[in-house]
């Protein structure tokens, strides 16, 4: 399209337009990111009289030997291993139900999506009340009701076994609507002609799901699983509000440890090293998603 003379070069005006955003990204994303890497190789402590030194990989060695940080990595992984498949399956199930041509589906969609607009801090506060200990607590009473009284009341958030699953449940409650909406959009993008052709061939519903819906949804599902996995590793708000990482590190997470180190103990370098580990995990998950999506494109 070289016929329009104005297209030759907009460098000046373009840089002018992009500058505010680019400067912002540089100062508040790129710079702190580089700073995280640099700080993680030092011994910087806020307010410490000792001079800052270059320590190489010392901080990484320290956090690796820190039992709380190991617990944190384990908890985040456990969280992801349970939440990602369960939440995705639930979201897929809801989306399939809502995708049927029945009246009133918009209302149900609204109800399932509603928790998404709730700030996580509020969700954590409300569920803390729901998890109140004793038989009078709502969750205990509910479980007692559905088990016909076979449930012994728990103090969920102070129980090393139950604290993490308790946080998982409310996180799924808040997050599933988000996934559901994305999957629903994916379902609606599948050409109906595929199903019509399958119906003519006498294919049953299960086979249609197995051989049309799932393959067509593949990239959408990979995407929502990626986002959820990363969310699982970002876990912080719920832990800070509900358990402070306890009891006995049963619910501590990488971000909780990073904030504790840098914010409460002023150990910037240690916090930075944890942050870098966190980023590497996120990067690995993202690369994995790209590979999975590419692979599928190559097959097609």
């Amino acid at each position: 399209m070289p016929q329009t003379p104005r297209l030759k070069d907009d460098t000046q005006i373009a840089l002018g337009m992009a500058a505010p955003a680019l400067i912002g990204l540089f100062l508040f994303v790129l710079l702190p990111f580089a700073l995280a890497v640099v700080l993680s190789f030092t011994n910087l402590r806020l307010g410490s009289p000792l001079p800052t030194q270059f320590l190489g990989l010392e901080q990484y060695r320290r956090i690796w030997l820190d039992p709380s940080f190991r617990h944190a990595l384990l908890n985040n992984s456990l969280f992801a291993i349970v939440v990602v498949p369960v939440q995705t399956a639930l979201a897929l199930g809801l989306a399939l139900l809502l995708n049927r041509p029945l009246r009133g589906m918009a209302l149900f969609r609204t109800l399932f999506f509603m928790p998404v607009v709730f700030p996580m801090a509020l969700v954590a506060v409300i569920w803390t009340i729901i998890y109140a200990p004793g038989a009078n607590g709502m969750m205990n009473a509910f479980l007692g009701f559905v088990s016909f009284g076979g449930w012994t009341a728990k103090d969920f958030l102070n129980d090393p076994v139950w604290a993490l699953p308790a946080i998982m449940l409310l996180s799924m409650w808040q997050g599933v609507g988000f996934q559901m909406v994305i999957i629903l959009a994916g379902l609606q993008a599948i050409p109906t002609s595929l199903y019509e052709a399958a119906a003519i061939d006498g294919s049953n519903q299960w086979n249609q799901f197995r051989y049309i819906t799932l393959p067509q949804l593949r990239n959408t599902l990979i995407f929502v699983m990626l986002v959820t996995t990363i969310l699982c590793f970002r876990l912080f708000d719920q832990v800070q509000i509900m358990t402070q990482g306890g009891p006995n590190d049963a619910t501590t997470t990488v971000m909780y440890e990073a904030v504790k180190a840098s914010f409460e103990q002023q150990k910037m370098a240690k916090g930075a090293a944890m942050t870098v580990v966190f980023f590497l995990v996120v990067l690995a998950i993202t690369v994995l998603q790209r590979v999975l999506v590419k692979e599928e494109k190559a097959i097609e």
Binding site: F28, V29, P32, F33, A36, L39, I230
Partner: peptide, 22 residues
């Protein structure tokens, strides 16, 4: 570069940003 920056979650820069802001 901008697209690459999308990968960085806020949590990954919270600590150094806190240092900067301080």
């Amino acid at each position: 570069l901008v697209i690459a920056l999308m990968i960085i979650p806020f949590e990954a820069i919270a600590v150094p940003l806190f240092f900067q802001v301080t």
